[in-house]
C-alpha cells in the first residue's frame, strides 16, 4: 500500500477537523445526540458507521457509471440498507445488550445524512480508492465527535468510563465523592448532548475563524 499521497491523506484528515461532518457539514446529527450517554455505545456506533460508509462508498463508486440518474436515490438506499442489516445482525449476535441500547438507531444509520451526503458529494464522482478514503475520513470525523460527547456525558453523568467507575464510588463516598461531589444526572438526558455539541462548535469556530457564519 505504501504511504498515502498528500492529497489522499487530506481526504482522511480534513473531516477530522475543518470539514467535520457533524459540526461543519451539519450531517448525521440524529444518532450523534441520542446514543452518546455511554462511551461504549458511541464507540460501537462510530465503528458501525465506519463499516457502512467505507464499504458503501466503494460499492457506489464502482457502480457510478451504470446507475441511471432517476433511480439514484433508491439504489443508494438499497446499498445502505443491506449493509446496515448486516451490521444489525452482527450486533444482535455478538453484543445483544448493546444492540438493545442502540435500538432503532442502528436502523437509522440508513437515513444518516452523512452516508447519503458522501455518496452524492463524492462517491458518485470519484474512483473507488479515493471514495474509500473519503468514507473512512468522514466516518472517523463523525466518530471523534461522538466519542468526545460520549466521554463528557458518561464521565459527568455517571462517573464512569466504559462502565468502569473512575471518580470513586458514589455510594461508599470514596475518591472524588468524598469531597461532596455528586454525579450530574442531567448529563444523561438528551438535551445536554445538544448543548455539548454547541460548545464543541464554539471551540472549533473560535480556533478557526474562517468557519464563522455571518
Amino acid at each position: 500500500m505504501g504511504l498515502l499521497s498528500k492529497k489522499d491523506a487530506k481526504l482522511i484528515t480534513d473531516p477530522l477537523a475543518d470539514n467535520n461532518p457533524i459540526t461543519i457539514q451539519v450531517l448525521g446529527i440524529c444518532s450523534a445526540l441520542a446514543i452518546t450517554a455511554e462511551l461504549k455505545a458511541s464507540l460501537v456506533m462510530g465503528v458501525a458507521v465506519l463499516f457502512v460508509l467505507g464499504i458503501g462508498n466503494v460499492v457506489i463508486s464502482l457502480m457510478r457509471n451504470i446507475i441511471p440518474s432517476k433511480i439514484r436515490i433508491i439504489v443508494q438506499l438499497i446499498v445502505v440498507a443491506s449493509l446496515v442489516i448486516i451490521v444489525d445482525q452482527v450486533l444482535k449476535a455478538y453484543a445483544y445488550e448493546l444492540s438493545k441500547t442502540l435500538s432503532v438507531f442502528v436502523g437509522l444509520i440508513i437515513t444518516n445524512c452523512i452516508i447519503m451526503g458522501r455518496f452524492e458529494a463524492f462517491a458518485l464522482g470519484n474512483g473507488p480508492w479515493k471514495s474509500f478514503l473519503d468514507g473512512i475520513g468522514n466516518a472517523l470525523g463523525y466518530a471523534v465527535i461522538l466519542i468526545v460527547v460520549g466521554f463528557f456525558r458518561e464521565l459527568l453523568g455517571s462517573g464512569t468510563l466504559f462502565g468502569v467507575p473512575v471518580l470513586g464510588d458514589p455510594i461508599e463516598k470514596t475518591g472524588l465523592y468524598s469531597t461532596g461531589y455528586e454525579n450530574n444526572g442531567f448529563m444523561l438526558m438528551p438535551p445536554m448532548a445538544l448543548i455539548i455539541v454547541g460548545l464543541i462548535i464554539w471551540v472549533q469556530r473560535s480556533r478557526n475563524t474562517t468557519l464563522i457564519e455571518d
Binding site: 438535551p191 445538544l194 448543548i195 455539541v197 454547541g198 464554539w202 472549533q204 464563522i212
Partner: peptide, 23 residues
C-alpha cells in the same frame, strides 16, 4: 450572539434548552 456561536452553535444550544423545557 458571540461570533463563533452564530448560526449553528446557538441553534444547538437553544434546541437543548427547549429540550430541557419539554422534559
Amino acid at each position: 450572539v458571540p461570533a463563533p456561536l452564530r448560526g449553528l452553535g446557538i441553534t444547538f444550544i437553544v434546541t437543548g434548552l427547549m429540550g430541557i423545557g419539554f422534559l
